[in-house]
């Protein structure tokens, strides 16, 4: 079936099997492999993308359900070589280790900051609770999000 949607700012139109998951469409058809699959059941958040500005697990969305929507993947966050301030702070604060959860983590945090530019620590923790990270213990990630909010407010 035909799916039309805006992907990282660009209008796209594809013909796809109706049962294809959004994650498979992104990874296999568009080669946007920054979206990762860690569990396939919506528990780990590695496949997080933004759908109409909201963080969703792309393993729980069918490609067909993305019709008429706006999807942003990790590849759509930086502008070319210029990182977003959140991405920069992920680096500055050591929020990245193996990096497998990082794309989803960045997108969940981006969605939070878009909706709530000045979140409390508890709100940050809530926003990324659906993104499992086994390396960092989350502390440096939380710091990076906090600092980004601070910079934005200033």
């Amino acid at each position: 079936m035909e799916v039309r949607f805006k992907l990282n700012g660009k209008e796209e139109e594809v013909t796809t099997e109706p049962y294809l998951r959004l994650i498979d469409l992104l990874r296999d058809y568009f080669n946007l492999t920054g979206t990762k699959e860690g569990c396939g059941v919506g528990e780990c958040g590695a496949c997080t993308v933004l759908m109409n500005g909201r963080a969703v697990n792309s393993c729980l969305v069918l490609a067909a359900q993305a019709n008429d929507s706006e999807i942003v993947t990790i590849e759509g966050i930086a502008e070319g070589e210029v990182l977003s301030s959140l991405q920069k702070n992920f680096l500055t604060y050591g929020a990245v280790q193996c990096g497998f959860c990082t794309p989803g983590m960045v997108l969940s945090a981006s969605a939070l900051l878009d909706q709530n530019p000045n979140p409390t620590e508890e709100e940050i923790k809530d926003a990324i609770a659906g993104n499992l990270c086994r390396c960092t213990g989350y502390k440096q990630i939380i710091e990076a999000v906090k600092e980004t909010a601070k910079e934005t407010i200033e």
Binding site: I74, I77, A78, Q87, V96, G99
Partner: peptide
């Protein structure tokens, strides 16, 4: 991190 840029951009 030397691989940081690649990891935060996917």
């Amino acid at each position: 991190r030397e691989d940081g840029f690649d990891k935060v951009t996917g």
